[in-house]
């Protein structure tokens, strides 16, 4: 398996506050990888750092054989890295279809098109002329995913796409994952729901306080290990 994304000792800062301390993560071609971790562990920060939303100048992030750390976010996007941001962030004054179309602004060629996205999420067809924000939470999430797919990414980053959604809706959305992978896109999901992460991913990284505390294929990790990596060592106390 060839490596698609690789970070080496990645650090990230908000002003003087350090949010990531030497994070090593790799995603292979065709893989689905999950990042788990408690609130504030640094998962979103990790995504922001690799997409260029947070400055990562002088660091080591290689993507598709290219060094992307420090590039402006729009250049990284054009290299084939797309993100579904935390909280969906649809553009309120754009319709559903316009939200999708704007995802294709980078001009990358590939399997994804408006028709393909509507095929993946048929619910959106009837809503295509509605403002993006007039949809249900699940449908908004579909638009956000579709918008990212429209750029025909090599790697799709999804930040907590199940947050605040009903179990049935979460199931619908995760059903799209295999079909996205079929198109040749690798996936990195951030999930707070550990069960969901274990079910979908071939490898899991657990973050805590800006560091990777555990990683490996779901089958090889025990519940106790995960709990320890997730909450810190004092598992009993934290679980209470």
């Amino acid at each position: 398996m060839t490596t698609l994304l690789e970070t080496r000792a990645l650090e990230a800062f908000y002003g003087d506050f350090q949010a990531l301390f030497g994070v090593d993560v790799t995603v292979g071609e065709g893989e689905t990888v999950a990042l788990i971790g408690a609130n504030g562990a640094g998962k979103s920060t990790f995504l922001r750092a690799i997409t260029g939303l947070l400055p990562a100048k002088g660091q080591k992030v290689s993507f598709d054989g290219q060094e992307i750390a420090g590039l402006p976010a729009d250049r990284i996007h054009k290299a084939g890295l797309a993100m579904v941001p935390e909280g969906r962030r649809l553009f309120p004054s754009l319709t559903v279809e316009e939200n999708l179309l704007i995802g294709a602004s980078g001009g990358r060629k590939g399997p994804w098109s408006l028709a393909k996205v509507y095929d993946l999420f048929p619910d959106l067809v009837a809503k295509k002329n509605n403002p993006g924000t007039a949809l249900s939470g699940g449908q908004q999430q579909m638009v956000a995913i579709g918008r990212a797919l429209m750029s025909n990414p090599r790697l799709l980053l999804c930040d907590e796409i199940s947050l605040g959604l009903a179990p049935k809706v979460i199931k619908d959305i995760y059903e799209a994952v295999p079909r996205i992978r079929e198109g040749g896109t690798s996936i990195l999901v951030v999930e707070q729901d550990v069960g969901q992460a274990m079910a979908v991913a071939s490898r899991v990284y657990c973050f805590m306080e800006g560091r990777v505390t555990l990683s490996g294929p779901p089958g090889e990790l025990t519940r106790a290990e995960i709990a320890a990596a997730y909450f810190g060592t004092k598992t009993d106390e934290e679980a209470a």
């Binding site: 939303l53 402006p72 996007h77 993100m83 704007i102 995802g103 602004s105 980078g106 001009g107 750029s151």
Partner: peptide
């Protein structure tokens, strides 16, 4: 609407 995430659209 949201200049912060426009770079994510290229």
């Amino acid at each position: 609407d949201d200049p912060e995430i426009v770079p994510l659209m290229g």
